[in-house]
Design a binder for these strands. Sequence first.
DNA 1: AAAAAACTGAGTACGACGTACTCACTTTCT
DNA 2: AGAAAGTGAGTACGTCGTACTCAGTTTTTT
Lengths: 249, 249
Amino acid sequence: MTGHENLWMRPERPARGPRPSFSRAALAQAAIRIADAEGLEAISMRRLAADLGAGTMSLYRYVTSKDEVFDLMVDTVVGEYLPEDRRPPDDWVEGLRLLAWQARRTMLRHPWLAPLAAGRPQAGPNSARLTETALGMLDALGLSVDEMLTLVGAVFAYVNGYIQSELAEAEALRRSGLTLAQRLAQHLSYIQSLIATGNYPMLERMTKEGGREYMGTDDRFAYGLDRLLDGIAAGLPPRGGPEGPASSR
Amino acid sequence: MTGHENLWMRPERPARGPRPSFSRAALAQAAIRIADAEGLEAISMRRLAADLGAGTMSLYRYVTSKDEVFDLMVDTVVGEYLPEDRRPPDDWVEGLRLLAWQARRTMLRHPWLAPLAAGRPQAGPNSARLTETALGMLDALGLSVDEMLTLVGAVFAYVNGYIQSELAEAEALRRSGLTLAQRLAQHLSYIQSLIATGNYPMLERMTKEGGREYMGTDDRFAYGLDRLLDGIAAGLPPRGGPEGPASSR
DNA sequence: AAAAAACTGAGTACGACGTACTCACTTTCT
DNA sequence: AGAAAGTGAGTACGTCGTACTCAGTTTTTT
């Protein structure tokens, strides 16, 4: 019961016995390298062990399940969200915007991250640093901790949601092996068959205006992020007013 | 090349031969029933076939891969987002808010939906109806189709992101087999060990204020959604102004 | 310095998975 | 009526996560 059932509380190195051949960090690095190069599904315990020059089952000395490998990967890479200079912008809006963009850049650099992180609670040291940093930006606003958490939670919900849908599209394209034009044409011909029923006037307009993709995906990301931050800022009390996150709804 | 490589364009029933014992819809229903009761990972082709009273490989007459089963599930359930009355609120903000809440309700009713939908582009008939409905709500605003898509994309990004993080927490709790209190205590003791380093003043404050969970998760969802809709509405041109989604950033 | 305790990494094995392939059979079109 | 084209069942293969065993090594204790 007092045992260390949590990855992050379990000591990396036991009190006695020979020193391990590698470390959790090395394990995470190796896994990240595989996932970056060949995608998440290329990671198997056998493959990972082979890359590390270890026996497959030896990995279970460092980690109790494959899932914990994923935990290590996520927490390691989440560290990249954090700006390198200790003191980010004073303005909290600029601070959160910066964090959001860093998150976006990181998730695009490691396309496996967004789906993986979305499916598990963030619990490692780097996630803690991230939370600490985000809350620190809101310190001067005079909100309760719960209000702050709600606020940054909303921003990260948007960021994760947006990037995931963006990546899902890219992934589907990659897996289909088609060119973008081919895929669009295929999708379009299905849409056309729906339009033929006469029940989809907006989709019909969509195929006619045909611009598509004229606004880059960076701009789309910025649009939603900026609107959300605008809305949050507008809803904050000018000074000690009654309009904090708690009183919404 | 003119072949039907897409699930939705492939005719369900071929021109000749005996009639199938069941339908794609029945397949989707069976899969949804399993996932609702036992989770996504309980779905295997063998299990699905057994539930349908069919041979395992017979499923591949209806679907070319397991992934297409997931496509069917997602599109089927996405249908539940749509309000049953043809004419939703006139106000576009109320319309989108309603859609967002319907999505939330559906995703909570089918906890496997959010992670699954996030990982694949929406391409089926019900997704098309959803897009049609959402765009229809914005018709009177005088935006271009791309601007509309950006707008509703932002809202759905938030909705998906929020619900996924909410479900991830619940899932982790379920899988750990602990009570909420136990899990919180465990998490807390890790946080405490970090705080002991003195580098986490905000987290320290967090443990002290200790309220936690005083704001329900429905309220948190509403907070971000309402702020986002506020921000979008505020950024719209009063009438033909220069401030549409396109000119952001 | 010696003995005991504890951890190491490699190997083997198991059950479950997605799905390719084969084949006797049934339905529908000509 | 015959032929074409579909049907569902069965078997088989390769891969996965991981439980278990065991000889060997390292560290702590006496």
